[in-house]
Design a binder for these strands. Structure first.
Lengths: 309, 309
DNA sequence: GTCATGATGCGTACGCTGTACGCAGGCGCC
DNA sequence: GGCGCCTGCGTACAGCGTACGCATCATGAC
């Protein structure tokens, strides 16, 4: 399971940038040159260069070749009208994932939906992973954080968590995607993190602790969201409607649960029978409250900046 | 995206059992009869019957045909030495998932590893989903709950959470699997649930609330575990070692994070630089403590004869 | 004008997946 | 012996992501 060929080239160029072997303004090897050096097809070398250009590390200068971009990345500057297709692709992909579930999302499917030739998508997105990544970015951008935060760290954390939750509810597949593409720095995830960390500054938690709180909060929202997804997916995948689905599952579930081996479970089930509906919104709100209560208690217990333990 | 043909047959038989159209002792249609009725291949019909037999709903009586099993399912009774292969398969699958990651797990791969013909696995496991399900069951069984619970609801919840956590650490892929196979009643998951619910009886929480607490606790552990997985997977998939991986990610991460747009993030990062290592164990313990503190506060606040510890 | 060089856009094809189906062979009853 | 049925496995299919090859075009040199 090696890295994809084009990715290997991309990595190597980046490495050369780090070590200083390549500096802003330098010319990269031409497509053909790369192809020869790496023993790959022309198209693959071109793919690598295109990827680098998309990331803004590098710029394609028409009659000169490919040149290392100088200065701070002006990401978003060059993407004017030319990337309309790119956004169309990502939005189409989101639409598919939204109403057919993540497993049903395929490059070929998106291409068909847009009436584009399959391979032409790779001109704009490099790989499916990158597609997923961009889907996540666009989805999160739908719920921007307000410019003026409310007063108090708790209110700020609540706001961030609820915003994130709302996004997850709209796009159940996100919970899984966030983990697949994980180690990548999502622009909007960072904005959330930044928001949370600012809120925590007020509490004077040490950096390490603040980081943990941030991660835990994110993990909590995501954890609940993952449940949303598996339900949405199961329904979409089997083509059942909710009722059928519930019927089938409750049946087998109850058969096992009430076998006599799980008496406490049975008792609880009996206690809530009438409207047994695990409302995820309520679950989320309860979890959030409990968690923040716990955090608040911790802060009260430990006033001022102190070392953990 | 319909249900698999054999699954459709299985479901229909179960439906007939529910409605009473089939009763214990009744004979099911023969393989050929089923194949004719459903317009599927003989092998598919046989597959359906085998699945039913494996689930214990039905029994294959040699010279008579297939008969609806009577009385409570004696699951585990019939599986003597005959299912040795089945267990071998599941264990092999677990081994693959453990050290190559879930994406690398394929039926063909497992078959190759065992030196068995590919299709022969379907004789014992029905489908990949079922395989995943059984993998989860076996994995969870590795950390059985003790016979004698410790004193106090909090200690009991902690124990359950830590046990679950330990399993997830050993088998990072589990976090994802639990969600894929979700709506199925896992034997061991129920045992955990039962344990948690018993612990909560002491707190006299109403049934609905107790259920939520249980789900939230499970969600929490799982949420943290999912992070474990995505890291393990990324490493396994790219074939990098941890160091390379960290290097690459930290690099791009820092490049974006320190772009000036996320000042609070930067400040926190600066504050913990020396040993920036997000230890998941510590993260888990902190989250657990905070969460249980919050829960305890809720119980105290709530009127009712509940005494902490 | 002709040509060389390089980039672009896309069709083809590969290696992989899960698994439905077909078929050979064996077993037991008539 | 013949028939009916089940078992076990090989073959084949539909679908995936995407590397590679080819046709086409833009451009500068001569």
């Amino acid at each position: 399971m090696a890295i994809a060929p084009y990715q290997r080239i991309v990595d190597d160029v980046k490495r050369q940038l780090r070590t200083g072997a390549l500096r802003p303004g330098d010319r990269l090897p031409s497509t053909r040159e790369l192809a020869r050096q790496w023993k790959v097809a022309l198209a693959t070398a071109a793919h690598a260069l295109r990827t680098l250009a998309q990331e803004g590390v590098v710029k394609a200068v028409p009659r000169v070749g490919t040149v290392v971009a100088g200065g701070p990345s002006r990401s978003g500057a060059t993407r004017g009208s030319a990337d309309l297709t790119r956004e169309r692709i990502v939005r189409a992909a989101i639409a598919v994932a939204d109403d057919e579930g993540l497993p049903a999302l395929s490059i070929r499917g998106v291409a068909a939906k847009l009436g584009l030739p399959v391979m032409s998508l790779y001109r704009h997105v490099a790989s499916k992973d990158v597609l997923l990544f961009m889907m996540a970015e666009i989805a999160f951008a739908e719920e921007p954080l307000p410019a003026k935060p409310p007063a108090g760290w708790r209110a700020q954390l609540e706001l961030a968590a609820r915003l994130e939750w709302r996004v997850f509810k709209r796009h159940p597949w996100l919970a899984r995607v966030v983990n697949i593409t994980r180690p990548q720095p999502q622009e909007n995830a960072l904005a959330f993190a930044n928001w949370v960390l600012r809120a925590l500054e007020e509490t004077r938690l040490p950096a390490q602790e603040a980081m943990r709180v941030h991660v835990l909060l994110h993990t909590f929202v995501q954890g609940v969201a993952v449940n949303l997804e598996s339900e949405a997916d199961a329904v979409a995948q089997t083509g059942m409607n909710d009722e059928e689905f519930m019927q089938r599952n409750l049946d087998t579930f109850l058969r096992v649960a009430t076998s006599g081996r799980f008496p406490h479970m049975e008792r609880v089930l009996a206690g809530l029978r009438p409207g047994f509906d695990l409302d995820f919104d309520e679950l989320f709100e309860m979890g959030l409250r409990v968690w923040l209560d716990g955090l608040e208690a911790r802060l009260v217990r430990r006033p001022g900046p102190s070392k953990p333990r």
